[in-house]
Design a protein around this nucleic acid. Sequence first.
DNA 1: GCCAACGTTGGC
DNA 2: GCCAACGTTGGC
Length: 151
Amino acid sequence: MTQYWVMKTEPDEFGIDDLRRVEVESWDGVRNYQARNMMRDEMHKGDLAFLYHSACREIGIAGIMTIAREAYADPTALDPASDHFDPKSDPDNPRWLMVDVRYKRRLKRVIGLAELKRHPQLKDMPLLRKGNRLSVSPVTREQWDFILSLE
DNA sequence: GCCAACGTTGGC
DNA sequence: GCCAACGTTGGC
């Protein structure tokens, strides 16, 4: 059964247009245990995910991608030259994981955060909770379909 | 740039 | 195991 997700990214670093160009990208740099556990335990190949642009001019859901590979060790955690280096990660027992995502399509327009917040149908989305910091969070089938209906 | 909200760390 | 201090995220 397909599951649905939303994954945050800062488009100044890597956004929907970058993903379109490379087609497949490893989603490295997740350094939050809750997000890691969801990727490790619940995310499966073939799942669908919204790509959400944060910390930018046009905040909101910008596109759709598919999970192309299930969770595996994130090498940037072991690379001292990486911004995401974690000195406490053990090469023999990697603490941080990543998945691969594949570009599916851009939305016809970016569905903005303010607009998403206006709809009571979406009020339970973890993404929209005040102070939410999860870079990966689940979306229900109903929420997924509703958001697409706004497009 | 500000600041609220949250996760993590570490002393006890 | 508690909790204060700190660092980070992310909207505004």
